[in-house]
């Protein structure tokens, strides 16, 4: 891998800085953070964490099996909670019955690396609202991991533990092609905007208070239905889910600009630190052997707007 010095010129774009850090980060042993480079995004992330007053304790990657991993192995099955409605992330193909998408690739990789056999992995669809209860339940109906575009934020960190982040997400706005909106503020101000209830997008819209009306739906995909039917002017959602939407409808587009950059990670119970370390190792390996990039190119990249197709924008700096 090629190394690059960080430019200090003020003109240096955020993207370039992130890219540099990502390449540096990936080159480091086991994918650990290089520690010496601070990028704009890192700074922003740190600022966010400071503001929220919480910061995840980093767990160094480890390839050895701890007590919880051993317990799962003796149980013979690793249950991973996934989504089956997010196109190209975790979705059931109605014609084949198979789950497929970026998160599914990662979930399968974790299963293969941890259990040594893909057949010992059960992918269990979990509703957004059930993600945390599914992890913490003790009645045997729960899951060991959640790989389902789960945001690493203070609310979630309070209840569950996260692996190292594996994807950068931002809140983006989708509009029909016919819309003249150029950026996020254009697209939202005075308009009827759709967001999934309880989502980050909804919180952002609610805090901005510029939309004429916020339409709340169960699932971000319901926003696309309403946008196609002309009931809403715009939709705010994560850029990865927005890419999934534009993959399903070529007459919608992403506008420039974004809100609330965050990262997503694999969630698990807080008392299983050895499992966290094991999953961190898988994520690092996944990135290092280009599995991450392959999945990105397959599921996400083709549906991203021009100018933001660079994979390094999406690999979080660890």
């Amino acid at each position: 891998m090629r190394s690059r010095t960080v430019r200090t010129r003020p003109a240096a774009a955020l993207a370039l800085l992130t890219a540099a850090a990502a390449v540096l980060g990936a080159g480091a042993p086991s994918g650990a953070a290089p520690g010496t480079t601070r990028t704009a995004q890192q700074a922003q992330q740190a600022l966010q964490e400071q503001k929220d007053g919480c910061k995840p304790v980093p767990v160094p990657p480890s390839a050895t099996d701890g007590p919880s991993v051993k317990a799962i192995k003796s149980k013979g099955v690793l249950v991973i909670g996934v989504d089956q409605n997010s196109y190209h992330w975790g979705a059931r193909n109605p014609n084949t019955g198979n789950l497929e998408g970026f998160d599914i690739d990662l979930a399968k990789r974790i299963g293969r690396d941890v259990m040594g056999d893909e057949k010992k992995v059960v992918l269990k669809p979990v509703a957004t609202a059930d993600r945390i209860p599914a992890l913490t339940s003790t009645d045997g109906s729960g899951v060991d991991l959640i790989v389902r575009t789960m945001t690493i934020n203070c609310d979630n960190l309070d209840k569950v533990a996260f692996s190292q982040p594996y994807f950068n997400i931002k809140q983006r706005v989708l509009v029909p092609h016919s819309s003249k909106a150029a950026n996020v503020d254009d697209a939202i101000t005075g308009k009827t905007v759709c967001a999934a209830s309880g989502s980050v997008a909804w919180k952002v819209l609610d805090a901005k208070r510029t939309a004429k009306r916020i339409v709340q739906v169960d699932n971000q995909l319901d926003c696309l239905v309403r946008m196609q039917l002309g009931q809403v002017d715009a939709t705010m959602t994560d850029d990865e889910l927005a890419a999934g939407q534009s993959a399903q409808d070529q007459t919608v587009r992403l506008v420039d600009g974004f809100e609330q950059p965050e990262t997503i990670g694999v969630a698990m119970r807080q008392d299983r630190t050895d499992l966290t370390a094991r999953v961190n190792q898988v994520i690092s390996d996944f990135y290092r052997d280009r599995g991450w990039e392959n999945s990105f190119e397959k599921w996400v990249q083709p549906y991203l707007p021009d100018g933001s197709k660079d994979p390094s924008l999406y690999w979080p700096v660890n």
């Binding site: 409605n85 997010s86 196109y87 979705a91 059931r92 193909n93 109605p94 014609n95 084949t96 699932n219 995909l221 319901d222 696309l224 239905v225 309403r226 993959a247 399903q248 409808d249």
Partner: peptide, 16 residues
Amino acid sequence: ANDRLGIPLGGAYLRY
């Protein structure tokens, strides 16, 4: 029609 294309939008339409 959406379901035949294999995209989850079909399910969202049917729920709507």
